[in-house]
Design a protein around this nucleic acid. Sequence first.
RNA 1: UGGGCUGGCCGGGCGACCGCGUGAGCCGGGGGUGACCCCGCUCCCGAGGAAGGUCCGGGCUCCACAGGGCAAGGUGGUGGGUAACUCCCACCCGGGGUGACCCGCGGGACAGUGCCACAGAGAACAGACCGCCACUGCCGCCCUCCGGGGCGGGAGCGGCAAGGGUGAAACGGUGGUGCAAGAGACCACCAGCGGCCCGGGCGACCGGGCCGGCUAGGCAAACCCCACCUGGAGCAAGAUCAAGAAGCCGCCCCUCGGGGCGGCGCGCACACGUUCGAGGGCGGCCCGCCCGAGUGUGCGGGUAGAUCGCAGGAGGCGACCGGCAACGGCCGUCGUAGAUGGAUGGUCGCCCACCGGUGACCCGCGAGGGUCCCGGGGACAGAACCCGGCCUACAGGCCAGCCCGUCCG
RNA 2: GGGCCCCUAGCUCAAUUGGCAGAGCAGGAGACUUUUAAUCUCUUGGUUGUGGGUUCGAGUCCCACGGGGCCUA
Length: 111
Amino acid sequence: MLAAEHRLTSGAAFGAAVRAGRRSGSRTLVVHLAGADVPAPPRVGFVVSKAVGNAVVRNRVKRRLRHLVAARLGLLPAGSVLVVRANPAAAGASGAELGSELDRCLDRVLA
RNA sequence: UGGGCUGGCCGGGCGACCGCGUGAGCCGGGGGUGACCCCGCUCCCGAGGAAGGUCCGGGCUCCACAGGGCAAGGUGGUGGGUAACUCCCACCCGGGGUGACCCGCGGGACAGUGCCACAGAGAACAGACCGCCACUGCCGCCCUCCGGGGCGGGAGCGGCAAGGGUGAAACGGUGGUGCAAGAGACCACCAGCGGCCCGGGCGACCGGGCCGGCUAGGCAAACCCCACCUGGAGCAAGAUCAAGAAGCCGCCCCUCGGGGCGGCGCGCACACGUUCGAGGGCGGCCCGCCCGAGUGUGCGGGUAGAUCGCAGGAGGCGACCGGCAACGGCCGUCGUAGAUGGAUGGUCGCCCACCGGUGACCCGCGAGGGUCCCGGGGACAGAACCCGGCCUACAGGCCAGCCCGUCCG
RNA sequence: GGGCCCCUAGCUCAAUUGGCAGAGCAGGAGACUUUUAAUCUCUUGGUUGUGGGUUCGAGUCCCACGGGGCCUA
């Protein structure tokens, strides 16, 4: 799991990031990034709905995304809040496919 | 050798690297007066048989414990097992199967109420359409010893319930006696019902005998009756600590300025109420008892941080003993998840199941089988306080016992 | 965690002591109209979510599954 300072824990923070942040989508996932220019660590949260699959599938998708995002924490600006939302197609995607789509979306959101 | 029944078990394995979580080590760095905390390093361990559905039962925790009556819910053959159960085992009864074996919410229908459509003559102190029989008239034909007799048809008035037909179900079955025709009207046997007795069994019940009356329908997964059982909530239980704007109350200290500790806990509106007592508790209602000055409802707003609970438990495995068994006793042995936006992910190698090949070779007359090669490829499914069950999902595989058929000896 | 409700024709809904599963819209055919729409007539369409059970008989009663929804902490 991510270090506590990088975790997004409140429902309100999720809502704020999804509504106010810059958005970029792909076949398997959607990325929201709300950039607050404050000197704090970037925080990340994940949303995997029941439409993706049963508990086994949802957990696997969430774990893959978490590990992929952990390797890219350095790219995020200070104080930003990132929410990664999984689409139903993510259930059948491999880790490599999720990684490349995550990179594309992050590039667009950070540009 | 073909088919089947039952019970039990497994449910991918080994390894490498990069990550994640609990715990330990105490090596290195940082912070702190300190207890200790943070980062890094090393090591151990890290999902299931169903972790699932949430259908039952219990442990645990807090609240209540003053009862009585009435309701409510649950269970439902007998005996046992268990902490307990709607679970498990054994047996009984009923049903199914050639059989191993399987299935059953399996108390009560003379306690009462109610329902049994359609069809059918009649459907719950039954009934008479066709039919059968007797009697009284009538009509037709035939015979005649002229007295009448026989056959057929139809009407009236009675008797009957055997046969036909309807239905899920028609008030016992077979044979006889009897009669105008018949009928448990009577008799024998059988089935079934009730009572008594004897024997077996802890018991459900089973076997046998005698007597009675000759026959009693089904539905309680309809209301109901009977017997037995049942306090309320739930780990967001609950405990401790921290934080807490303005405010209120109590106690203590005091240098009379204040300080400390504990408790309550926001705003607005409406309703009811302070001994003529609101409201609350005793699972629901009534009586009764207790607490009692605020309470209830609606709208809007706010908060839920840390630690403990929280992983040794009705625990797993293996001998032995008791028991048909479920299970129990005793001894030995093992140490094995604990997150809190929620730890098991990623990449790869070899092997093992399994699937495909219009691939090669070998065996066989053949169906087919074997070896190698290539490719594919892991069923159902993710702990959240913990156990015991039930139910449901599930690729494939292993073991044991038993039954039926066929062939050979 | 606790509690409750609903699945009937393509859609929206009916169906009372358990006794022949219906209505409206939609669809099809026909009439009217130069044509379309509207209107009128006729008509098709159901394993009552699935599987068992009780009963002579189940949409209805009972049990187990599946799907969907609501309330509450």
